[in-house]
Amino acid sequence: MTRPRLDLAAIDRDGAVREAADATSTRAALLGGALAAIGALALPSVAAAAPAPRDRSVLTYALSLEYLQDAFYTEAERLGALQGKVADAARVLGQTERAHVKAFRALLGSSAPARPRFDFHGTTEDELAFLHTAVALEDLCVGAYAGQATRIRSPEILQAAVDIHSVEARHAAWLRRLLDVRPTEGSLDEPRGRRSVIGTIAARGFVVDASDAPTTHRRASPLFTG
């Protein structure tokens, strides 16, 4: 059996991702900047129990990744284009990612970043594209959590990160089984730095920059029949 590539660079079934990247050549830079700004967000501590600025920066970064996964699985479930075991996985994984988002938002309180707008370029609407993207996103998050471990100062936050990290790894294993791919290769997972993770997401165009968001509200005169 030919082993499929399971990384975000390999996901571009109909050229949609590439087209999007070409159409908005500055998007990656813009999104990289936007996400970096989100990830580096460090507001002053407002309460004694609030996370230290450095830990809050990690939490904000983690929440951004959880937003991405939450949106991906939730969209897949709502569109109803997936069937059988794959649809079941989308449903269950979506529930888990939504729980993660809720927990991070509760911990960050008012300093939690707003949910971005996403464009998954049809990968939630096709079974194979969904599975490849899902594995890539889970792997990305596993590497991202591992990459932050040495930056976290609070033992309680480190504990939370480790707790979630292993859940994401099991997600990746489950999705690989659905692709009929061996869930584990090698003996070591490499941690991924924040810049690498943000760059990968931005390059795929999954996060819609505010300047690209559709304009649906306008101060303009109606041209309706009345």
């Binding site: 939730t74 479930e77 109803g80 888990t96 609070s154 309680e156 480190l158 939370a160 707790d163």
Partner: peptide, 19 residues
């Protein structure tokens, strides 16, 4: 092990099905 800083709720189904 230290307690977790996150209180992760139980996974819950979406309120509105695809239909």
């Amino acid at each position: 092990a230290p307690g977790s800083a996150l209180a992760v709720p139980s996974p819950r189904a979406m309120p509105t099905p695809a239909a």
